[in-house]
Nucleic acid binder design. Structure first.
Lengths: 232, 232
DNA sequence: AATGCTTAAATTGTCGACAATTTGTGACTG
DNA sequence: CAGTCACAAATTGTCGACAATTTAAGCATT
């Protein structure tokens, strides 16, 4: 670990060894950024042409996108980009709450002292970034996910890590990206992160889980009102 | 809902509309039943021949099996049937504990009165089956999962339901099936199920979640010792 | 005899063409 | 004029062949 990066790029940097995986990454970005609109129909031959590959690997890419719920597929009837409604996001946030709560509990049990130290430094960097930009931290989005990502890794639970990082965070990124700017919650979020980190440092599994769950359910309350205001 | 079925078949009964999906189901059964041994190599051309299809749909089936973790895949290097070690099962049970805890909480909040009544009747049927067979309930396996399945449905959380039913339960079934007979825990399990159902009927979200988590973590302690004894 | 390189076999990745299914269109009938 | 059936277009599902990559085996070299 270099310790210099304030944001961790969770994507693979080295080119994927297969066409299908590279295309999967491309389409994933296009969906998250909104270049492929929500609910728009996916026609295999069109996309194959657009990305310059044949239908075989493209189909695999689509299947992988279905796996992480960015695409909805119906046999013989084709596939569409997912449409994020409030109902679905509530499911996501509830699942995230329980999973990350467990992750925080496990992290409190298993994290090494040097990891805990490193986590603390990460939060210092976030604090610095907040005061520098006077609360309008642009990278708060990624920085926030960065903190949660570290907890997930520290849990040493592969299943949970994979679901959070590969699926839930993607959907949350997409939702954030396509819902305009969020109110600057950077300072309160950081405070809560600090409390969680402190509980972990104290090896207080119970408290770490409770604080993490409260943190996420609080975030959901905000997102919920935004989504509801949007659709009225 | 008919109310007559004591065990719910969670698989699709009507033939799947596509070759890939049918083959997916076949291979899935073969893996869970142990006809395809853990860790054995999967060669696409061989399996395609065995199931009488071409490599295209077979590849899709394999991808779906990878998705639910019954197969592990490495690009260009082929795929193998998963090997269930203690480490992995611990991840599974920890994830299950948090997810089903949340499901029980949501069920306590959202379940309709008639659903609660039906759940109670299901437990009566389980009790009858236990006394009939004098504790040696053969279908306890499925019956147990049946109860948990109902809670997952009642949570009305699609994401959680899909992960539990499509992924975690499959792995647990496979683990049970390939670890010989488990000690008859039918009576204690039923008692705990009754307590959970009672908490749900009382709309006590907090208690429902706690009891469900305790129930599952207790089950893990048993499974854990079995797995450890096995590998020594 | 052990190690490293070269080559051959086996296996996966990719492609384009064909078959099966669904969806949309339009004529026909009540 | 509404509803239904048949037909045609578009799209997905399936297949077999070819290309790229990994794994293994065999040979030469130290």
């Amino acid at each position: 670990m270099t310790g210099t990066a304030s944001t961790v790029n969770t994507e693979e940097l080295h080119e994927s060894p297969t066409l299908a995986l590279r295309t999967f990454d491309s389409i994933k970005s296009d969906i998250i950024n909104g270049e492929l609109a929500q609910g728009s129909k996916i026609v295999e031959s069109d996309l194959a042409l657009k990305y310059g590959i044949s239908r075989g690997p493209l189909r695999e890419a689509i299947h992988r996108l279905e796996r992480i719920k960015l695409i909805v597929r119906i046999p013989h009837a084709g596939s569409r980009v997912v449409t994020l409604d409030t109902r679905m996001m509530e499911d996501i946030y509830n699942a995230r709450e329980s999973l990350e709560g467990m992750a925080a509990r496990l992290a409190a049990r298993l994290m090494s002292d040097v990891e805990i130290e490193s986590l603390s430094k990460l939060l210092d960097q976030h604090a610095a970034a907040i005061s520098e930009t006077d609360g309008k931290v642009y990278f708060q989005r990624e920085g926030d996910i960065d903190f949660h990502y570290r907890i997930a890794v520290a849990s040493q639970n592969q299943w949970i890590l994979e679901k959070l990082n590969g699926e839930l965070y993607q959907l949350i990124r997409m939702c954030r990206h396509q819902s305009g700017q969020f109110p600057s919650r950077a300072q309160t979020a950081l405070d809560q992160h600090r409390q969680i980190a402190a509980a972990i440092a104290r090896r207080d599994e119970e408290l770490a889980e409770i604080l993490m769950r409260r943190h996420i359910s609080g975030a959901w309350e905000i997102v919920k009102t935004i989504l509801e205001d949007q659709n009225d």
